[in-house]
Design a protein around this nucleic acid. Structure first.
Lengths: 211, 211, 211, 211
DNA sequence: AATGAATGAGGTTTCATTCAT
DNA sequence: TATGAATGAAACCTCATTCAT
């Protein structure tokens, strides 16, 4: 979470806790409805059932409120991790599991992801946040790709660092396109299947089927 | 290009033409330096060497000026077209040529592309513009993928529409990551090679080399 | 009074009440000094001893502030009502009383009446307001004229509706001419006497004196 | 006409004369359509079929153009003159003739009269113009009233100066109400009859009919 | 903690008028 | 005389944030 900005003072009383929770919920609604720029503190306070000024009892700024909203979904929104442990020994299944986790989380929080994209274009703090999350993902995938290459399970001609960026871009931007821009109804299983196959193809990971 | 957004009547006199050109140049500089939101009309006018109000002789609004800036780079910025004609009979060469064209254009106009991304998150008009460009690209690629599948040159298990979105996302988002976010010095040839290989791998397009 | 034009929610705290009152007073001063068009929000705020933006805590717009100023003088500024009850049985005395009330109110708020005239030429909202007030007056007078005609106390050859407009125009426009345009010192009793006599003559209302 | 402001330089050539005439016509249309404040020089020039800047070849300012428009209707728009010469020896007929002339002129140029009223509330120059016209009218009527009083043909109890203002206010404001504000279809003969009777009644001028 | 009034910076846009060609 | 581009003043209103109660 971007530094200490999420809250000015750590809330103490249960009443404050309740108010804060109501404001986080309200903030998410208003942000998702109006976008970050057009969202007004007044509207958030009103939606949270408190007076205008009370917003600042709990958040130092509009940014801080947005950070608090993001913090709530952080767990759900980890990037897909091609972690073999997730799927026994089968790397393809691992990719699929990672994609499923990511896409389900993305779809569930699509508007928020769109917001993060919006805010990150403008605000250094959230640009860093977005980058940190992406980096963690990319680096872990780069390690995995290197391991697969060593094991003869992935195309050795690929630069693992660039490949990690590329496949992660493929999944995340496709999710953005379908869920945020198009807002289309999507057959998630089919989407996962296609992206997984593209991914494993791209790395030339061996699969049971014949070419 | 968002149609009516630049001032409707074509400028007449050479003097006007000169002033307008100076303003487009100035606008690009200011936008790239300050971002769309923080760019001030005043600064653009000043950078263009004209009086404050003269900006409005040529552009109806900040949006219109931005549209004019984008129009200038339109040709350069076409999406990669996997058009076989570009590379004789070799589909892999065609992909590579398309990627090269796209990535060179992107790198050359990286800041502007970052701006477009920024503005599109906020402004319906430019959201449509971005979408229109992406759609054209995606649809042509979808046709190409279908053709390759029919010819037995691409993985028939892939949904061509989703695959078209995915590979296009891979290239464009990787460009955004490297050129806009990271702003790193990049070995373009290596990047093109990797992306092309990932792309052709992803579709299981046959290539000369052995796995 | 143009309904929703003053800020919707009734102000709460005494402090707000005080500030609002100060702003209404300040607005009246500035409007009367500079005219509606040239009056600047900044000047009103300054004259009211509050910050620029505080004006908008209490009024949605310049129009709303003007409406609030008008609301303050509404009682004083009713049009003259030729209501017999005001003067026992003597209709002439009733006319005189009505004229006195109207002219005293008009003189007292002359600059404001000039302003209303100014604003009404430009602003639909206040055009309606002016019209509503005039209509109420005219219609009541039309009824009275009809009654007097029935009682044989007024010239039956007159169209009561047009006559009502005409006599009301006579009084109100004379007031405008003398108090707003000429801004002359006026002997109010003499003016009332003349207008009353013209009025009662015009309707051929019987009076004690001989011609 | 308000001083020399109507034209910067006296036009010479027939071409200039034609352009100027077209602009006066255009100005009247635009003023009547949009009101003085909202009328834009650009629109006037466009309606007149000339370039924006050419407006200033013929008029020093927006005010000057409005003055030129008013000058065109000046003859028609003289105030009613209770001039016995108009109607032989019958003073009532004279009043009627004067009212007819005034009301016909007013109705014919109603929108322009509304404009003059609008502009006069804001602009000193036109305030003076309006006042000069009204004064001339009022003073002549005051003389006539005095004469009638001397001849025993008018109520001697009336202050002739105030009475002159009052009856002139009655006619002019009634015209404004009906033609400018209400914009109603009006039976002109009936209106003239009523106003004439009110007027002659008001002064207690003898008429053939019995009370 | 909660309230809600007060603060004040900040930039867009319009359009009458000027002026070089 | 006509053109039309250039000028620049001017002020409104929003809203995040602060602060007195």
């Amino acid at each position: 979470m971007p530094d200490g900005s999420s809250t000015s003072t750590t809330p103490r009383t249960p009443r404050a806790e309740r108010t804060r929770a109501a404001l986080v919920k309200a903030a998410r609604e208003v942000f998702e409805r109006d976008g970050f720029v057009d969202a007004r503190i007044t509207d958030i306070a009103e939606a949270g059932g408190v007076a205008h000024g009370s917003f600042y009892t709990h958040f130092a700024s509009k940014d801080a409120a947005f950070a608090a909203v993001l913090a709530e979904v952080q767990e759900e929104m980890l990037h897909p991790q091609m972690d073999a442990a997730d799927a026994g020994d089968d790397p393809v299944r691992a990719v699929e599991a990672a994609n499923r986790a990511y896409l389900e989380g993305y779809r569930h929080n699509a508007r928020l992801m769109g917001l993060l994209e919006q805010v990150a274009t403008t605000n250094e703090e959230f640009r860093r946040l977005r980058r940190r999350r992406a980096d963690a993902f990319v680096q872990r995938n780069a390690r995995t790709i290197r391991r697969l290459q060593r094991q003869g399970l992935a195309d050795r001609a690929l630069d693992p660092n660039v490949a990690a960026i590329a496949v992660s871009s493929m999944v995340s931007r496709t999710a953005y396109t379908l869920f945020v821009i198009d807002q289309a109804e999507v057959d998630l299983d089919a989407l996962i299947a296609t992206l997984t196959r593209l991914w494993t193809n791209a790395l030339r990971m061996p699969s049971g089927d014949k070419d």
